[in-house]
Design a binder for these strands. Structure first.
Length: 829
DNA sequence: GCAAGGTC
C-alpha cells in the first residue's frame, strides 16, 4: 500500500480526487478521514501534529531559574494524538510513503515530522517527497510521476526557528513574570514576533504623546464663472520655492485675508488639463484582503475567520497566501464565465466582452498558494450569513477588478490672481469608470471645476480664513499594523492577525485602533533597556539569515542554536543583575493601569481589584487598614479611562463587554446617586407579600444597575431585571395577571416613542423564553462535537452568555475559538 | 501556565 501524507484534510481530499480520477472513497481511521482507492491511502495532517517543549522537570516556574531554560533540552511531543495515531497505524502497513505537504519551509518541516512518525513504526519503508505549487491535475500528476527526497536542511531551518522561539520566549516570559510576581493567567508575555509588534504600537504612542501641535491658517474663497460657483484655496510660494497652502504666521494670514476681502474678482492665470490613468488593484494576498475587509468594518481576526469558512465551504481559494500573481494554470476567462448566470452576471459579461484579459500582478510571486480568488462553485446566498456574503462579494469583485481596465481621471487645475494673492482650484472627473464599475469599494467622488479660460475675470465672494492645528500621527489600525509587520518581515500570513489578538488578550493593548496599556510601555521599556534584541525586528532578520544558511547547508542547526544560546546567556547576565529594579518597574505599571484616584476615606489610592470569586470591585490600596470599597457592574472587564470626575478626582471606568460595552463613569458618583435615589414601590412581592408584607420597588444599586426587588431584601431576594439606561416611568395601567403597573423606558433619543417594557414580571418571563429559544436555535447550529464540549463545561445555553463570558469560554473549552463564540452570539441576536 | 507556526 502507498501512503500519501498532506498538510491538511482539504488537500488530502483534493489530491485523492485527482489521482483517483474521482474514484476515492472516504474511510475513517482512528476517527481521522482517510481517502482510499486502489492500493493507495491519503491522509491529511492538521499542520504541525507534534510540538516542541521542555522536559517535564522544567515545568514548574518557581522551581526553575528562567536562565536554566537556555540550556534545557527541547523535546518533541505529539499535540494531535488522534492524527498521529491514525498516521502511524497506516504507516505500519505501508510499502511506500509519499510526503505531499505544502511547498514552503514550514511545509518541509511538517513533512519531516510526518517522516519521523513513520520511521518510529516502520524502519524500512521508503519515504519520498513531492512538491507542487498548486493542487491542479497537471501539477499534481507530474509531481507524483517524478518524486523527490525530503530536504532535511530546509526542515532543519524550520526546527532552528522553533527552538530559538521557544527558548527566548519561554525564558524571558518566565523571567519578567517572576520578577513582577505576575503568575497564573496574568503572566507577562514576550516573544520574537509579539514584542517588536508591541514596540511599533508603543513607539507610535510615544510620538503622539510627544507631539506638540502648531497653529496654522488656511484661506478659501468662492469663485464664479457665469452661474457656476466653485471653491478655491489660497496658496503661496514658500522659502524653498514650493507651493504651500498652510500659513504659519497669523499676521501673514490676516494680510492675505484682507486682500481677498477687498478683491471683488480674480483673473485666471493658468488652466491646465491632464488625464491620469488609475490602474486596477493587484490580486489579493492575505494582508491586502484583510485591509480591504477592514475598510468594510471587519477586524483582522473576523475577516480571516470568515475567509476560512468560505474556503472550507469551497467558495474561495486558500486565504493564507503571500502571492499576488495568478498562476499560469488559472484560466481567468473560464472562471469569469462561471459567474455569467449569477447576480454578478452583468459585471462578468462586461469583462468577458474584452478580447484581452490580462490580470494585474503584484510584487510578490510565491508558489505555495494562488492569490485569494473565488472558485467556480457559486454559493447559494441563503447558505451564507450577511457578513459571509459581503466578504465573498468582496473577493469576487476583487477578482473582477484585477481583469478590468484602468480608470481614467481628468484633472483640471485653475490658478487665479486676486490683487496679487494666488488662488487655486483642482477639479477631477472620472471619465472612464474602468475597474471601479466592478469594484465599488474605492472612493470615486469628483470635484467639479468649470471650464474657464486664461484671462477670464471670475467673481470672488465669501472669503474664509480657517484656524487649524497640525494633528498628531495616527495610531496604527489593525490592517495598517499587519501591513507594517509584513513589510518588516515579522510573523507570517497565517499568524499576524493572531499576534494582534494575543496582544489584546495579554492586556498589552485595548480599544480599536489599539492603544498600549501602561504595562505594555513598561515591558517595552524594560526590554529596550536590558534585552533590546527582543523588541527589535533585527531578531527576525538575523533568524531569517541563519535559516537561509541552514537551508543552503552553510551552517548547521546546532551551530545556529548554540550561537543563539550564547547571546541569550549574556542577556540573562544583565537581566539577573537588575532583577529587583525590573520587577518594581513592572509592578508599578500594573498598578497604574488600575489606579482610579484618591480614597475618600483615607486619601490613599483606590484601585480596581478582583475578588476571590472573580468579580471586580474598587478597593483601597491601604487595605487592610482602610476597608473602603465600591462595587462595579457585574458585566464586562473594567477599563480605567483617562477622563476623571471633577467632583471626586477619580478616573471613570468603562466596562468592556463586546457589543454590550458601556461607560460606567465615576464609581463613587454612581454609588452616591444610588444612595440618593428613593426606592419606588410598585406593588406586592409575589414571593413574600402575603406572608410578610414584602413589597416590590424599583431600586438603583451602587454598582449602577437597576432592578425591581423586594423591600425586605436581604430577607427576601426576589428580583426582576431592568435596563441600565433610560428614565423609567410607572404608568397607571396594571397587568391583570400580576397586579403590577406597566413600565415605560425613555431612552433619550425619542421621547414620543418610549420602550413599552410592560409589567416587569411578564417582561422577564418573555425575556427568559426568548433566551431559551435563541439558545436552542444557536445550539442547533453548533454541531454535536462542540455542543458536547460546551455541555462538559456546564453550558447549555449560548444565548445567555455575555461576551466577556464568551471569551472566558473560548479559553476554557479547547477547540472553541472566541471568534466562533462571537458568531453564535451574533446569530442569537 | 511560557513562543510561533501550522490548521479548524
Amino acid at each position: 500500500m502507498e501512503l500519501i501524507v498532506t498538510e491538511k484534510n482539504n488537500a488530502a481530499r483534493r489530491i485523492a480526487d485527482i489521482l483517483s480520477e474521482g474514484g476515492a472513497s472516504t474511510d475513517s481511521v482512528a476517527g481521522v478521514n482517510v481517502y482510499k482507492w486502489g492500493g493507495r491511502r491519503c491522509i491529511g495532517l492538521s499542520g504541525h501534529v507534534v510540538g516542541v517543549d521542555f522536559p517535564p522537570e522544567y515545568s514548574d516556574w518557581r522551581d526553575v531559574e528562567p536562565a536554566e531554560l537556555v540550556h534545557a533540552d527541547v523535546v518533541k511531543e505529539p499535540t494531535q494524538e488522534d492524527i498521529v495515531n491514525a498516521l502511524q497505524r497506516l504507516a505500519r502497513e505501508a510499502d511506500d510513503v509519499v510526503i505531499a505537504t505544502d511547498y514552503d519551509r514550514e511545509g518541509e518541516l511538517i513533512g519531516k515530522e510526518a517522516y519521523e512518525l513513520v520511521r518510529d513504526v516502520n524502519e524500512d519503508v521508503p519515504v519520498k517527497r513531492v512538491r507542487f505549487s498548486s493542487i491542479t491535475d497537471n501539477e499534481v500528476r507530474s509531481a507524483f510521476a517524478d518524486p523527490d527526497d525530503i530536504d532535511f536542511d530546509l526542515a532543519a531551518a524550520g526546527e532552528a526557528r522553533q527552538i530559538i522561539d521557544l527558548m527566548w520566549g519561554a525564558a524571558l516570559t518566565r523571567f519578567l513574570s517572576l520578577s513582577a510576581r505576575q503568575m497564573g493567567e496574568d503572566f507577562i508575555s514576550v516573544g520574537r514576533v509579539q514584542s517588536p509588534t508591541l514596540k511599533l504600537i508603543v513607539d507610535k504612542e510615544r510620538e503622539i504623546e510627544a507631539f506638540e501641535p502648531d497653529d496654522y491658517w488656511e484661506l478659501f474663497a468662492d469663485l464664479t464663472k457665469d452661474d457656476t460657483t466653485f471653491e478655491a484655496q489660497y496658496f503661496y510660494e514658500d522659502e524653498d520655492g514650493n507651493e504651500a497652502e498652510r500659513v504659519w504666521d497669523e499676521g501673514d494670514a490676516e494680510a492675505a485675508f484682507a486682500t481677498l476681502q477687498s478683491a471683488s474678482e480674480a483673473i485666471v492665470q493658468s488652466v491646465s488639463r491632464r488625464t491620469r490613468s488609475d490602474d486596477p488593484p493587484a490580486p489579493f494576498n492575505t494582508t491586502q484582503f484583510i485591509r480591504a475587509a477592514g475598510s468594510l468594518g471587519y477586524s483582522a481576526g473576523r475577516a480571516m475567520s470568515i475567509a476560512e469558512d468560505l474556503y472550507t465551504a469551497g467558495y474561495i481559494t486558500y486565504p493564507r497566501t503571500d502571492n499576488t500573481v495568478y498562476p499560469d494554470d488559472l484560466d481567468e476567462r473560464e472562471l469569469l464565465a462561471a459567474f455569467e448566470n449569477t447576480v454578478f452576471g452583468d459585471d462578468a459579461e462586461s469583462l468577458l466582452d474584452h478580447d484581452d484579459l490580462t490580470p494585474t500582478e503584484g510584487d510578490e510571486e510565491t508558489t505555495d498558494h494562488p492569490p485569494i480568488h473565488p472558485t467556480t462553485d457559486f454559493p447559494n446566498r441563503n447558505d451564507l450569513s450577511e457578513d459571509e456574503w459581503e466578504v465573498y462579494e468582496l473577493v469576487v469583485r476583487r477578482f473582477f477588478a484585477t481583469l478590468a481596465e484602468p480608470a481614467v481621471w481628468e484633472h483640471l487645475r485653475v490658478v487665479a490672481d486676486a490683487d496679487g494673492e494666488s488662488l487655486k482650484a483642482n477639479g477631477k472627473r472620472l471619465v472612464e469608470r474602468g475597474y471601479h464599475a466592478v469594484y465599488p469599494y474605492f472612493n470615486t467622488s469628483e470635484n467639479y471645476v468649470p471650464d474657464v479660460d486664461e484671462g477670464d475675470a471670475l467673481a470672488l465672494a465669501d472669503p474664509r480664513m480657517e484656524a487649524k492645528q497640525t494633528q498628531p500621527p495616527r495610531r496604527y489600525g489593525q490592517s495598517r499594523l499587519i501591513e507594517t509587520m509584513e513589510s518588516m518581515g515579522i510573523g507570517t500570513k497565517s499568524t499576524r492577525h493572531n499576534t494582534i489578538e494575543k496582544l489584546y488578550d495579554r492586556g498589552y493593548i485595548e480599544d480599536n485602533p489599539p492603544r498600549p496599556t501602561t504595562l505594555a510601555k513598561a515591558v517595552v521599556e524594560a526590554a529596550e533597556e536590558y534585552a533590546d534584541l527582543v523588541v527589535s525586528e533585527g531578531m527576525t532578520s538575523e533568524l531569517e539569515a541563519d535559516m537561509t544558511a541552514i537551508a543552503e547547508g552553510e551552517k548547521t542547526l546546532d551551530e545556529v542554536t548554540a550561537e543563539s544560546r550564547e547571546i541569550l546567556d549574556r542577556v540573562f547576565d544583565e537581566l539577573t543583575a537588575s532583577r529587583g529594579e525590573i520587577g518594581d518597574h513592572l509592578r508599578n505599571s500594573l498598578k497604574a493601569d488600575k489606579t482610579l484616584g484618591p480614597c475618600p476615606e483615607c486619601g490613599d489610592t483606590l484601585l480596581v481589584r478582583r475578588s476571590r470569586t472573580g468579580s471586580y470591585f474598587v478597593g483601597c490600596d491601604g487595605y487592610p487598614e482602610c476597608r473602603f470599597t465600591l462595587p462595579l457592574p457585574s458585566t464586562g472587564e473594567p477599563l480605567v479611562l483617562d477622563e476623571t470626575c471633577e467632583e471626586h478626582d477619580l478616573h471613570e471606568v468603562k466596562m468592556l463587554a463586546g457589543r454590550n460595552t458601556f461607560v460606567h463613569g465615576c464609581p463613587l458618583c454612581a454609588a452616591e446617586e444610588a444612595d440618593e435615589s428613593e426606592d419606588r414601590v410598585i406593588g406586592a412581592c409575589p414571593e413574600c407579600g402575603e406572608e410578610h408584607g414584602g413589597e416590590l420597588a424599583i431600586k438603583q444599586l451602587q454598582s449602577g444597575s437597576r432592578l425591581v426587588g423586594c423591600t425586605r431584601y436581604p430577607d427576601c431576594d426576589y428580583s426582576l431585571p431592568l435596563p441600565r439606561r433610560g428614565d423609567i416611568e410607572v404608568t397607571d395601567e396594571y397587568c391583570e395577571e400580576h397586579d403590577l403597573p406597566e413600565l415605560l423606558v425613555f431612552d433619550g433619543e425619542d421621547d414620543d416613542d418610549p420602550w413599552e417594557l410592560g409589567c416587569p414580571i411578564c417582561n422577564y418571563e418573555e425575556y427568559q423564553e426568548r433566551q431559551r429559544q435563541k439558545g436552542l436555535e444557536v445550539l442547533d447550529g453548533i454541531g454535536p462535537k462542540t455542543a458536547e464540549k460546551l455541555e462538559d463545561a456546564g453550558i447549555e445555553d449560548v444565548g445567555d452568555l455575555t461576551e466577556a463570558d464568551a471569551d472566558a469560554l473560548a479559553e476554557e473549552v479547547s477547540g472553541v475559538s472566541a471568534d466562533s463564540v462571537r458568531e453564535w452570539q451574533a446569530k442569537a441576536d
